[in-house]
Design a protein around this nucleic acid. Sequence first.
DNA 1: CATGAATGAGGCTTCATTCAT
DNA 2: GATGAATGAAGCCTCATTCAT
Lengths: 213, 213, 213, 213
Amino acid sequence: MVTNSELKKQPPKASSLKEKQREERTALILQAAYDVLVEKGYYEASMDEIAARVGISKGTLYLHFKSKEDLIFMLIEQETGKFLSLIDQIMTAESSVHDRLEHILLESYRSIQDGRQFLVALRAIGLNQGAIRDRIEEQVSIIGLMERLTRLFEEGKTRGEFDTAIPTTIMVSIFMRLMELYSNEQPEMNDLSPENLLKSVSQLFFHGLLKKS
Amino acid sequence: MVTNSELKKQPPKASSLKEKQREERTALILQAAYDVLVEKGYYEASMDEIAARVGISKGTLYLHFKSKEDLIFMLIEQETGKFLSLIDQIMTAESSVHDRLEHILLESYRSIQDGRQFLVALRAIGLNQGAIRDRIEEQVSIIGLMERLTRLFEEGKTRGEFDTAIPTTIMVSIFMRLMELYSNEQPEMNDLSPENLLKSVSQLFFHGLLKKS
Amino acid sequence: MVTNSELKKQPPKASSLKEKQREERTALILQAAYDVLVEKGYYEASMDEIAARVGISKGTLYLHFKSKEDLIFMLIEQETGKFLSLIDQIMTAESSVHDRLEHILLESYRSIQDGRQFLVALRAIGLNQGAIRDRIEEQVSIIGLMERLTRLFEEGKTRGEFDTAIPTTIMVSIFMRLMELYSNEQPEMNDLSPENLLKSVSQLFFHGLLKKS
Amino acid sequence: MVTNSELKKQPPKASSLKEKQREERTALILQAAYDVLVEKGYYEASMDEIAARVGISKGTLYLHFKSKEDLIFMLIEQETGKFLSLIDQIMTAESSVHDRLEHILLESYRSIQDGRQFLVALRAIGLNQGAIRDRIEEQVSIIGLMERLTRLFEEGKTRGEFDTAIPTTIMVSIFMRLMELYSNEQPEMNDLSPENLLKSVSQLFFHGLLKKS
DNA sequence: CATGAATGAGGCTTCATTCAT
DNA sequence: GATGAATGAAGCCTCATTCAT
């Protein structure tokens, strides 16, 4: 036990302690950045405000991130990664494509509601343009999402679930818009629970708007 | 009398000429601003670049618009106004709500394709956040669009065309997302003609994704 | 007479006709410039506003004056010249220095009231500083005024009218401040007529503030 | 106890140190601004030059003052406040009004000589006109000065010290001009010491210019 | 001559980033 | 490591001046 406790004090563990603290702080920064970003958008989100919200100095931000752009990219990457893993899990389920898509929608709404969602919120944050856009497309797996969805819809067509007359591209595009429906921009929509929203959206998306005669 | 009428044209012509030139210049600026805006978004669109693209000096912009914000708002207002008029025309048609909604979608895609569309592109331009958002909501009739659509969908329900189980709010939200599908952000979508895009979107929106058994 | 009338049409006279018109317009501009200057001060007086107030275009101003600075200098010079002539007349009068100084004060107040006064109003217009100041001192005879006043006060001392214990410089300085008392800045002072103001100022200046026992 | 008291000084010292430096810097800026202002006047005083004169960058100015206007107003307010306090002290003295007025004049000259004077120098700085003027009148106690002086002169009349035939307004106006006599604009006047200037001015103001027979 | 649209230099201000303490 | 004062590039805007019509 003495050895053990001595070992704990050793550099590797000492650094892993520091590292843990560091990572915690990084997480705090990312959360604050997320909040400001959603409230103000990329261009009106200032490093000052992010730092102030975490309760640290501006300079400290730069000990964690090389630049504002970098901070944002890390943020996006992290959330994107988590979300894509989730999607991957859902995609490999045994259920129908229909069910899996509903599941994806639901998780989208939930993640937005929890304030941990980016892949789907880029447009809402003003990152879909200008110089930023290119770096986003390069470094962030929005493409990954599109690929996965494309695969899924194709599978649906192959299985005979979906109307083959509609191009997959269009299905994917519309589906992605549906994913971001529960955005932070339309407060009136946020009164619904993710589950209730899903019900209607799903009904509309799969069965159409028209009354069945 | 011919002579007389020709003479009468003189004075107005004089002022007309200058005014026409002025309006043409204004239109050129608005077009350039539109282009830059769509490419770079509001915050990265600099007055310098707009001026350069028109081929005039920065100062000249301020002979036509009293500030950057003003330029943007005029741009939005102008296009918005035209588009809302169009919607109003379509809305008063005799046809089914279904047909009228298709018509609206089609006009949306056309106007986006022509580069004269804003009501529907605000999100794509980064005006849906921060300080700007409030002024937009005050001054631009995005609300007007929502009201009109709400009315239309309610009429659809009353007429028995649409599924009354789906809340109108959700119908409207989704429809608005469909309107902006043909955005300038997704080049792959723009290979389709507005008419072809409409066909698939409409099929999906009204009849659903699922294969009819 | 015919000859005379023909002569009038001749170039020299023709030009003197044009010249008359030109001078009239120049006078109009100077008057407008004076008004704006007194209202807004030199730096907030814009060429635009001066032109607008005369009812001509901005470009036309430059047909009469080479620059804004020039316009101002001409204005000052003109009014200065007139005023200095007046002073010279007064100075050569036979009366006591006391009387002549009162006369000068009275004419100062009158000229300010009429809106034709500069020599005395430079400070009130913001021309007593910066780059402008040097040119003013070079080109405008504010020095001329000081010289004249100095001469007058010295004469007063020689004649035994004034207290020789007070340095002439100080007399002159104070007297110049008294001349600009009736400025456009203190509306409460302008309720008094020039004559009434003079009475009090003169009493104070010559006899002092104290109650005679 | 000594130790304790020394320890107590620690934490405050830490913040005191930075704060002191900050205040020193602020004071340096205000002094530079004062100098530029007196030399160039408000409109030709550029933030660039003020910064350059302090030896800091333009951006740093904005860490201390949020705008050019603010910088100027702070400058004026600070000096104004000090000066008005001084006046208040003098006003409550037991001596004759005559003596107190002399004292005020003397302090005016001294403060101008030291380069810490504004209440009295507004005209000399070009702040007596245009848009600025209103903010000055609102925020700066030039009115406060006039009120105090008015009170003082009325007291002088009541006490039987002053000539009641001269309106108080005029007394105040003239007195204020005398206060600014020792301005930075007339170098020839500055060769006199404040005390010597006072002697002559006072003699003239109270006893008049005329030689006593 | 008269016009007024166009110019461009110059001023104010913001904010991401750096660096001495 | 942490701080926050300092920097300076870059953006918006004004206005005296010019020039084609």
